[in-house]
Amino acid sequence: MKELLVTIAQGLVEDPSAVSVDVDEPKEDGTVVYHLHVAEDDMGRVIGKQGRIAKAIRTVMRAAATRNNGKVSVEID
């Protein structure tokens, strides 16, 4: 899952080397939180107009987690 998020983010940004992902321990309900970190200049590219790209990233991650019977949440820092 972490590799999927990194791959998606690196395809969107101008500085792929600045992309990193931190993973939190699962919560009580089993949700795993992924924290996506990108360069300050690339933040707009990852979020998109009115958050459309961020919403699409979250949708893809949720779909991948559903295939593995899991729950995920993506936060962009």
Rank of each mutant, 00 (worst) to 15 (best):
V32K: 06
S17A: 15
D22I: 01
G48T: 04
L12G: 09
G70Q: 15
D41R: 14
M43P: 04
V6N: 02
D22N: 14
Q10L: 03
T31I: 05
A64P: 02
G30W: 05
L36D: 14
T59V: 05
V74Y: 03
A65K: 00
V6F: 01
I76S: 11
P16V: 04
V38W: 07
S17C: 03
D24T: 13
G48I: 03
Q10H: 06
G51C: 03
R67L: 00
I47C: 05
I8S: 05
A64H: 04
T59H: 07
H37Y: 13
A64S: 14
V21D: 09
A64K: 05
R45G: 05
E3F: 09
G48N: 07
K49H: 12
G51A: 02
E40F: 05
A9Q: 12
E75K: 14
E14I: 03
K71Q: 13
I53M: 13
R67K: 15
E3Y: 09
T66Q: 12
L36Y: 12
D15F: 07
S17L: 11
G30F: 06
K27I: 01
E75F: 03
I57N: 05
D24P: 06
V13T: 12
E40P: 11
V32S: 06
Y34L: 12
N69H: 14
Y34H: 09
D42G: 02
A64F: 02
N69I: 01
E25G: 08
R58H: 02
K27A: 15
V74N: 01
D29A: 08
D22K: 15
G30S: 09
Y34V: 02
G48K: 04
K2P: 06
G51N: 03
V19K: 10
G48V: 02
A64E: 13
P26V: 00
A65P: 00
R52W: 01
L12T: 08
A9C: 08
A39P: 03
V21Q: 07
G11C: 08
T66L: 15
M61Q: 01
P16I: 06
N69W: 01
G51V: 01
S17I: 10
K27M: 10
H35C: 06
V72A: 08
A64Y: 04
A18T: 14
K55W: 00
E75Y: 05
D29F: 07
I57Q: 04
D29N: 15
E75Q: 14
